[in-house]
């Protein structure tokens, strides 16, 4: 791993690590959204050959995630690989964010009396605190839907029920929505910024880098915000 530490030593290297881990996390978020959209799939899903009444699509999707790769992999095998990659990515991302933040603090020990004007986007200024909100949210999210500790009457495997139960409480929905906005802002700058960090620039595609970032920031935010709203408005119900 000496190549990694050599790279990681420099600020540019740290940023590259942030960008790559950011891409991994972004990929997860996209898949997560696609998965969650199953919440809107009407009717019940019956696996081929299954005889019962079937299950909600989103529950079936959860089941799928737990068993994907079988029999080549044991049950939960692929899911765990996936979770480990995500965990490493999250740790590296946060670790780098932390170190870079310290670096930036150290670089200006004395603040300006008159705050420097902001000439460019405000989104870029929200990355740090936005990241913290996202982190808190992720922890809550895991306790809510994975461990179930903070979910009222949690039923393992019944994703649909758990979601409806959690979002029926307006304050949980509100927190969820706020966190999604933080994520949206994070992506609004982050998805553009990663091109810079990794040196992916060319006059031919430079102009659509920010288009890409803005489009996905909106897609992710609108998509994710729609779930609590759908529950609160009764569009999705028990």
């Amino acid at each position: 791993m000496s190549w990694f530490s050599a790279l990681y030593r420099s600020a540019v290297g740290k940023k590259a690590v942030m960008a790559v881990t950011g891409i991994i996390l972004f990929g997860f978020i996209v898949l997560h959204l696609i998965g969650n959209l199953k919440l809107y799939e009407p009717g019940l899903y019956k696996a081929p050959g299954e005889t019962g009444p079937g299950v909600r699509y989103i529950n079936a999707y959860g089941l799928f995630l737990r068993h994907v790769g079988e029999p080549a992999l044991p049950a939960y095998g692929a899911l765990w690989i996936f979770r480990i990659v995500l965990l490493v990515a999250v740790i590296l991302h946060i670790w780098a964010a932390w170190q870079l933040t310290l670096m930036s603090r150290a670089a200006r020990p004395r603040a300006y009396a008159s705050r420097p004007k902001i000439h460019t986007t405000y989104a870029s200024r929200t990355l740090r605190w936005g990241g913290v909100i996202i982190l808190l949210f992720v922890i809550y999210h895991l306790l809510d839907f994975t461990a179930g500790t903070v979910n009222p009457g949690f039923v393992e495997g019944d994703v649909y029920r758990n979601v409806v139960a959690s979002f029926s409480r307006w304050y949980v929905s509100l927190f969820y929505i706020l966190a999604q906005m933080a994520l949206g802002l994070h992506l609004y700058h982050g998805l553009w910024s990663l091109f810079q960090s990794l040196g992916w620039n060319h006059p031919r595609f430079n102009h659509w880098r920010s288009g890409f970032a803005h489009a996905f920031a909106w897609i992710i935010t609108i998509g994710n915000v729609s779930f609590p709203l759908a529950v609160l408005t009764g569009l999705v119900h028990k």
């Binding site: 420097p116 902001i118 000439h119 460019t120 870029s124």
Partner: peptide
């Protein structure tokens, strides 16, 4: 060298 001198890192703020 830039790091050694104690400069910060780039967040791509474009300021």
């Amino acid at each position: 060298a830039m790091d050694r001198e104690g400069f910060g890192y780039c967040s791509n703020h474009a300021e």
